[in-house]
Design a protein around this nucleic acid. Sequence first.
DNA 1: CATTGTTGGGTAGTGGCACTATCTATGTTA
DNA 2: TAACATAGATAGTGCCACTACCCAACAATG
Lengths: 206, 206
Amino acid sequence: MRISELSRRSEVPIATIKYYLREGLLPPGRSTSATQAEYDETHLRRLRLVRALIGVRGLSVSATKEVLGAIGTHGGEQHQVLGLAVGARPTDDDAAEPAPAPGAAEVDALIRELGWEVSPHAPARAVLGETLETLRSLGEPIDRSTLLPYAELAERTAVLDLDQLRTSEDALEQAERALLLTVLLEPALLALRRLAQENESARRNG
Amino acid sequence: MRISELSRRSEVPIATIKYYLREGLLPPGRSTSATQAEYDETHLRRLRLVRALIGVRGLSVSATKEVLGAIGTHGGEQHQVLGLAVGARPTDDDAAEPAPAPGAAEVDALIRELGWEVSPHAPARAVLGETLETLRSLGEPIDRSTLLPYAELAERTAVLDLDQLRTSEDALEQAERALLLTVLLEPALLALRRLAQENESARRNG
DNA sequence: CATTGTTGGGTAGTGGCACTATCTATGTTA
DNA sequence: TAACATAGATAGTGCCACTACCCAACAATG
């Protein structure tokens, strides 16, 4: 298909598609001439994925590019890929801070206590540490004994997540599935927590 | 204290504090003259809270204002307050869409099945519905039986959350605590899930 | 083959957001 | 009295995610 059909089927303006092409979020089509290129279903699929990551999850364009790039290169290695999106928040801090990382010690201790086997460079470690540090500075410290039951629930969530992945064959498709389930499910899980909070609050207070 | 001390203690530039004052994120100080105002510890506390919501959680200024406004007016009613932040994503869609809401039926069914008692207007409903709808349109549908165990884990997370709140007295402080635990803990919970995924993945595949 | 329309590729413009800088009249402090 | 700080207002900045426009190829149609 040509770009106009891609635009129509994805409901993304042509100008925006061109922008994504420039930014490398979408692989270029197969050129058939100087002013013509051919796109296929994988482009459509990828475009919809991009839109979902940006629109539903709220990732920035550059964060989306990073995540998608990781899919392309690391294809099969699920857990290497998935980590990238978690640390990416719309309001991104400066890159390159090999600083001692606040709260890292507490995070290390927690992970050791849980017996988890995770990379020392996982961005999620920094996110966790930063959050704990912030809560502490606000006078609402969350200690390890408080966090532990949360971590156990996270563990069981992860089991559910991994169970969902057991059915794919193609490596690229597998990676895309993983992305959908981890990144795109995040707002849904937070929404569920919120609804559960409201319910629990109503149950306790009437 | 005056604004310069507030700035120094919070490490927020004076110009930014003035900006927050204009935007209503921070209540004005007590004016002592035409060009002088007095701020106290509550201002400092609030300012740090604002910075945490914007910086750590990535809320937009307007979303932060809404959440804080809700604290002010609804003070005690926790679960009414907490919902506001969940629906707020940095990339905000148009307001005012009384549209039939995609995937609402599925969400309703799920909530009924769980026996949860939540407001029909809870923003989290829409977020959940939208996410499910998006996943469906991407060819990766999450049906109710898949979502149910996630919801049960969310329920247990909510129990932990509410347990944390049992120790405050002051209504305003209580609301602030609630905000911290729900909104600011979100990145931490997602990070825990991510770490747990990596661990589980390593455990299964070696 | 001429006309009409589309495309790739490039460049420049737009609107929103979160600040940031500057100015002025008025204060306070040393 | 001189040096400095402040509230309040306005204007400017840098970034981001588009969006609009232009042009020289082409393609499709009659």
